[in-house]
Simulated scan of single mutants.
Amino acid sequence: MSMKNRIQEGIYQQTSRFRLINVFFRHGELRSLWGILLFAAIYMSLQTAVASPLEHIFGAWNGRSHLITPGNHLTREVIQSAVLLISTVLMARVEGRRIAAYNFGDNSGWIHLCWGLVAGFAALSILVGILWSLHLLMFDGVGLHGTSVIKFALAWAVSLIVGCFWEIALLRGYLQFTLTRGIGFWFAALTLSLLFSLLIGTHRAGFLYIGNAFVFEMVLFLSLWYTGSLWWAVGFNTAWDWAETYFFGTSNSGLVSEGHLLSTHLTGSILWSGGKIGPEGGLFIPPLMILTSILMWLCWRRVERSTKAQTLAFAKQDSAN
């Protein structure tokens, strides 16, 4: 082969190599599509090889896996959260990022978590109050007494915060961060909310529940938009589920749990009360979520304006000096 042919062959091979690299990488970063596919492959592999066998073992050992108890729920959610965190850490190593980059990092994380807890309990309490005032929900009395009150309150709190962390981080962690790089924040939020709502709503309830789940998920994405982290959403979802599961003793997405403080039952039209699905299956969810969004906007926009005003004031002072 002549020198000219060898040079041309080298140029061709180098060009082909660059083209192949560009298929997987853009500006030195793994393209979002390949990142999501790799994350899904790792996550599903761990689910099949680790999570499913462990859940089967612990479920068989407990012997009461058909009942929703704090222990059974916590076991499953710890396994699911561990699989999710391992998958996220592996992707962080592949992409050369810290795990905090995937919406976990937040200097005010504890504050956002606590305010989320307050907001979630308040929102569910308002919903229950509306249903009770319209005779769509009836209180049957107190279901727990003595030390069982504290025992189940703490057990459900721990179990639900782990479970809600898994649910929130699954949608608003690596997947949201990576999909945002490809199609933008709100298209990513719409896509993930729709897919998740269809997943949990199919074969369980009708279009109303799916629509309510979609609206609920979008509100949690709105909190991510304002705070820059997923911790407010974790707090809100945890307190909402805790109020349903433990405090008021209503169905939680159609599931009734063991160990609730109050005993209640829903009556009247299922379009408004939610019926067997629970309070989150009725027509009051969309207006309640709209009200929550407005309050979030009023609160966080005010903080944002205050922060910007302080920044401008410091900038003017520095320029004057």
Rank of each mutant, 00 (worst) to 15 (best):
G116P: 14
L117G: 12
V118Y: 12
A119H: 07
A119C: 15
G120M: 00
G120E: 04
F121E: 06
F121V: 10
F121L: 14
F121S: 10
A122G: 09
A123Y: 08
A123P: 04
L124E: 01
S125C: 05
S125A: 13
S125V: 04
I126S: 04
I126C: 12
I126N: 01
I126T: 11
L127W: 01
L127V: 04
L127A: 00
L127Y: 04
G129I: 02
L131C: 02
L131R: 02
L134H: 13
L134K: 11
H135A: 11
H135P: 03
M138E: 14
F139N: 12
D140L: 11
D140H: 08
D140V: 04
D140E: 14
G141T: 12
G141I: 10
G141E: 12
V142P: 09
V142T: 11
G143D: 08
L144H: 07
L144R: 03
H145M: 11
T147D: 02
T147A: 13
V149C: 14
V149D: 12
V149K: 15
I150L: 15
K151F: 14
K151Y: 11
F152I: 00
F152H: 01
A153M: 12
A153H: 04
A155Q: 11
W156Q: 02
W156K: 06
W156G: 02
A157M: 06
V158D: 03
V158C: 07
S159K: 04
S159Q: 00
S159P: 03
L160N: 08
G163Y: 01
G163I: 05
C164F: 10
C164G: 05
C164M: 15
I168K: 02
L170V: 02
L171K: 07
L171A: 12
L171F: 13
L171S: 09
L171T: 12
G173K: 11
G173W: 03
G173I: 09
Y174N: 06
Y174S: 11
Y174P: 12
L175S: 08
L175M: 14
L175C: 14
Q176N: 13
T178I: 09
T180L: 03
T180D: 12
R181M: 06
G182Y: 07
G182P: 04
G184P: 05
F185I: 03
F185M: 02
W186L: 00
F187M: 03
L190R: 05
L190V: 12
L190F: 14
T191C: 11
T191M: 08
S193A: 13
S193L: 02
L194G: 02
L194N: 07
L194M: 13
L195G: 08
F196G: 10
F196N: 09
S197C: 05
S197L: 01
S197V: 07
L198R: 08
L199F: 15
I200E: 11
I200A: 09
I200M: 10
G201K: 05
G201E: 06
G201P: 03
H203C: 01
H203T: 10
R204G: 00
R204M: 01
A205Y: 09
A205M: 11
G206N: 07
G206W: 03
F207D: 07
F207W: 15
G211P: 05
G211D: 02
G211H: 09
G211R: 05
N212V: 04
V215M: 03
F216V: 13
E217I: 09
M218N: 05
V219L: 14
F221Q: 07
L222A: 08
L222C: 08
L222H: 06
S223N: 01
S223E: 06
S223G: 09
S223Y: 10
L224S: 03
W225S: 10
